[in-house]
């Protein structure tokens, strides 16, 4: 009798577990489905718009024909500018956090700063860019103002990636250098940093892929609806791919006519971002596996 009750209970337990695990699996699959649906709709609707002309031509006829060339170039400028402006500070921060800080108040304060900065909504960065870079510094709506705003936005991403990369360098590398009489900076410069470069580059790729897709921070600081030429100086406005997609889909008078072009532009942006992310993730995995120490 007792044995029977136990086995009945165990059967129930097993069934409950099976149902529960099926639900957990299904929830995880929903993430696959979401990504798949986004990818599928962009590819099926947008692939017919893709051509060399689409990538290399200016928009024509009130942006109802032609390509996305200036938006691509503009996004490239903004993103490269943001990374160049942000990277030195990010690497220096990471070096300080991983090699110089001795724990205590300053580290905690700076960590709180980095984490809080990472949590600030992107539109608030846009507001800062407008109030500070555009207005107070007098840069106007320009490539430079947009790049500076994006640089602040990706700073926490680059710092975290850099710190992770530096901390992955084994302690005995540093100790070896210090034992040979190197100063701390000499050890960092000649031993720690070179070892950490692949990790830092992974972070750079992630930062680029984040910056290239951001729209809100550049709306009031850099982006132009349409330009008939490429930006020539840092104080020019620029077209940018994500902003281009946004205005084509919502504000352009002929938005229904240009459906195909919109999907094409979205596919290009999504493709670039996903490839960069995928590249960063697989490269990181490879670097980790290859490590000999």
């Amino acid at each position: 009798m007792i044995a029977q009750v136990t086995s009945e209970g165990q059967r129930r337990k097993r069934i409950a577990q099976r149902i529960a695990f099926a639900l957990l699996t299904l929830s995880t699959v929903s993430a696959f489905v979401a990504l798949g649906a986004i990818l599928y709709s962009m590819i099926s609707n947008g692939v017919s718009a893709l051509s060399w002309q689409f990538l290399s031509e200016f928009p024509r006829k009130m942006m109802t024909e032609g390509g996305i060339y200036p938006a691509l170039v503009g996004s490239l400028y903004l993103t490269v500018g943001a990374v160049l402006l942000s990277l030195p500070f990010a690497v220096a921060s990471a070096i300080w956090l991983s090699a110089y800080s001795r724990g205590g108040l300053w580290v905690r304060v700076i960590r709180v700063g980095v984490n809080s900065l990472a949590g600030v909504p992107s539109i608030v960065f846009g507001l800062l860019g407008l109030a500070f870079f555009v207005k107070v510094l007098g840069l106007g709506v320009s490539l430079l103002a947009g790049a500076l705003t994006l640089a602040l936005l990706i700073l926490p991403i680059l710092i975290r990636a850099g710190e992770e990369a530096l901390q992955a360098v084994p302690m005995n590398f540093r100790e070896g250098a210090l034992a040979l009489g190197a100063t701390k900076w000499h050890a960092v410069r000649t031993v720690v940093l070179p070892t950490a470069i692949p990790g830092i580059l992974t972070g750079v790729i992630l930062g680029v892929s984040r910056a290239i897709g951001e729209t809100a921070p550049i709306m009031f600081t850099a982006a132009a609806f349409y330009m008939s030429r490429l930006p020539e100086t840092l104080s020019d406005k620029v077209m940018a791919l994500p902003y281009h997609i946004f205005v084509m889909a919502t504000e352009s008078p002929n938005y229904y006519k240009t459906r195909n072009l919109q999907f094409g532009a979205a596919l290009v942006l999504l493709g670039m971002v996903l490839l960069m992310n995928l590249g960063a993730v697989t490269w990181r995995a490879r670097v980790r596996r290859r490590k000999q120490w």
């Binding site: 995880t28 897709g213 997609i245 971002v273």
Partner: peptide
Amino acid sequence: VAKSILELLAGVPSVIYGFFGLMI
């Protein structure tokens, strides 16, 4: 695999989510 998928999903720009929502 699941972690990579989540990472990719997190990397999709918000304007693409918006565009997907608007069109589909």
